[in-house]
Design a protein around this nucleic acid. Sequence first.
DNA 1: GCAAGGTC
Length: 983
Amino acid sequence: MAGGGGGSIRVLNVAEKPSVAKAVAGILSRNQGLRVREGRSRYNKIFEFEYTIRGQRCHMLFTSVTGHLMEIDFEDRYRKWHSCDPADLYHAPIRKYVPQDKLDIKKTLEEEARRCQWLVLWLDCDREGENIAFEVVETCNAVNQYLNVWRARFSALIDRDIHESVQTLVRPNQLFADAVDVRQEIDLRIGASFTRFQTMLLKDAFTIDFATDERNLVLSYGPCQFPTLGFIVERYWEIQSHEPEQFWTINCSHTSDEGIATFSWMRGHLFDHTCAVIIYEMCVLDSTATVTKVRHQEKLKYPPHPLNTIELEKRASRYFRMSSEHTMKVAEDLYQAGFISYPRTETDCFSARTDLNGIVQEQQSHPVWGPYAQRLLDPEAGLWRNPTGGGHNDNAHPPIHPTKFSAGESGWSQDHHRLYELVVRHFLACVSQPAIGAETTVEIDIAGESFSASGRVIIAKNYLDVYRFESWGGSVIPTYVVGQQFNPTALTLDSGVTRPPPLLSEADLLNCMDKAGIGTDATMHDHIKKLLDRFYAIKDQNTRFSPTNLGEALVMGYDDMGYELWKPYLRSMMECDMKAVSLGSKRKAEVLETCLQQMKACFLDAKLNKAKLLEAMAIFFERSNRPGGDEQNVVFDNVRPCGVCQESNMVLKRKPDGNFMVGCMGFPQCRNVVWLPGSISEAVVTTQVCSFCNPGPVYKIQFKFRRLEIPPDYSVDHLGCIGGCDVILRQLTEICGTGSHNLSNMSARGQGPAATTINSQRTTSRQGACAHCGQTGHSSNSCSSWTTRSQSIQSSGTNLQSARGQGPAATTINSQRTTSRQGACAHCGQTGHSSNSCSSWTTCSQSIQSSGTNLQSGESSIPCNLCQEPCILRTANTTNNRGRKFYKCQSQECNFFMWEDSMGDNNISRGGRSATRANSRSANSNSSSSRRGGRGRGRGGRSGSRTTEVRFVSATGEPISGRSCFVCGDPSHFANVCPNRGT
DNA sequence: GCAAGGTC
């Protein structure tokens, strides 16, 4: 490192945010001779002071950016949604630029950098920080290539760290920055491609009747938001597929002068009713209890670890029902006003150098928790304990803690008060002794069966005194000694049912994301909010999340395709790759290429399987009759570059009349088009490239023809090329015509060269034979086996061109030719009306409306068995259950779902219990087995979660199926409530 | 009109 030297050098220091610039400048200058002036940006001031770095006198200029200085986006040509096939976004050029709102910061950097010799980067010490560092370097180097660039590494904004850091400057780490470049590019390409794809595919195809303006509806996909949605849907499905099961347990209680002890059966509960009854009968017949074990134990309840962002969000949600997004807003306010430390931190352990004592001292005068703080500082109280960390450290920020005392500010909302209180109490708890409890466990034996009861007495509350959000429940039980005998006050056989897990709470969701590495501490709340903004999920009053129909349909669609795009694995894989890049074990270009290649293949596959998405949507939404509602019309598959305009791609389209064409995306400026045979029922662009045709690549198309509309000697499946080399395709075009654009139409209007031409070479090779049936003796024109449709084609004049080497495809209408068609409807080609008012559009949308309506809303409804809201009869459209009718409760908060064909079963109530519970069980079981398609999502048999909620069914006197009271034999009640039973 | 990541 340069040192010594006579004169002073100018050093430009740049921090990631204004607060850090201010703090570091304050520490380095020791607030001596520190001057501040405005920069171009009102938030990013410039601090100036003198400093000496390893003997070199420096005039320090300290300014900041605000996070990333640059953004990436596609080049202009690809930015419009219809400018290209979304698949092109996997290789479309990307540019990195400083957005408009950051230009003033850029200007400040440029102005200052010009006059400096050194650049010292004080960005946060994580990968993103390193990437921002290089953005700053790029900006400054552009105006001063002689800058000596240094990186300051620091882990906390405290004197010792900062002074040490500036004396041990290092070079910035390109590998760390590379890892972020990889992430940015992958996120952009995947996000934009899938978002455009699914939005264009689904938005207009269905009536998605949310409050918002449908035209602005964006069905976004993102590598973080989708797995987050996946967690919500998965839990929702788990609940739906839960099969309640009845279980039995024996409970015993004993009341004495000292109180009540409730003993629970050490077998837990049994699912075998007969077995439970037999054991119960044994206990009742020999009900004397003998105490077999008494154990006294001291138990500790530890205070929480120091607070990081995720923990703050989870606790604010749990204690105050604040959303994570709102929590972060309030925390940001408190941080900006200096009351709490930086709220975006992963760190949950304090540095040994933090002045914990000083932080407690500040809180001594608070009217509520002040006395506790005083006790903490009193060595005689013995309350202090050095905090233990949770093992996370971002090496950039300390755990969230109070930085300034406040007894409440006038401008604070209730949430500001609450959050500040949480931060303070949490901090005080962290430096406190754990709570101490004395636990007693008593075990008894009744007729060979073991039961246990426990009680707890809190000896010292310690941290619980200040951390009012936590409690340590416990009850006192009477004293027992080993060998003591007593008669239970009550001995009952109780029944309960297993229950599904609850919907995910916000804290649960944050937990899932944290574990799976979805998002960062600073962005997790954004992803959750995005799901709500996109109408993918809703949050109920208990801050629990469930998917909307839209969210569920999207996940279901991808799941039915067999993809786990909604699972966290993709992100985990990316995280691994990024780590490898940052460590230098993988190269940036290599990771980018591999990942994008895989994702593109996945994307193309998803496009091929788009029917699955449509099917899943059709379960929940009605088909729309909007013109763009035909998904075939809005999702384009790239076939080849356009040889006419040489700007856009030619894409496969299906017109509203069902016929296929390959047209230039540059329409209407470029009208290059290839009409395809009218006998095609399906056409899908593959990834195979034709090795003959130019300009390439020309992707081959997998066609399926309608058997009855093509000659018998042609296969219904054909992998074809529209570039001009494909003989079969041209034959079929000639034979079948192109629907409304058949040759008779063309020639009738005197359009010159027909769109559908027969290749002379091909015709020559089959001279003398009918092109239709292949037999000689007649031409295809007079072939008797042909349909009326093809006969109309035969009258057309054919423009014979040689097959190969003709440049643009033989079946191409070029732009020059199209010019002559100006004034004709772009849809059907006829004159006299525009495409807006073309009657064939209307016909098409009507047919969709009448035939494609799977969701027969309002056709029939029954009151919900669970909540009494109406249940609407709908028709499923999934692969496994197409056409099957089901009832689904309209209420968003009710999970009732029942197949219509299984309703009979539901009338059989089990064990004489109320029909309601039986119905819900049956409904759930049906939904699990069929809707989840047996992919192992629903739990089978008894492996799932069982909660121990016990219902005293028998206490109501209901007989359990097939049994009668063993005391008096009466089938109308059970033994434990038998009036004839002695104690 | 797309993502996720910084931050004001």
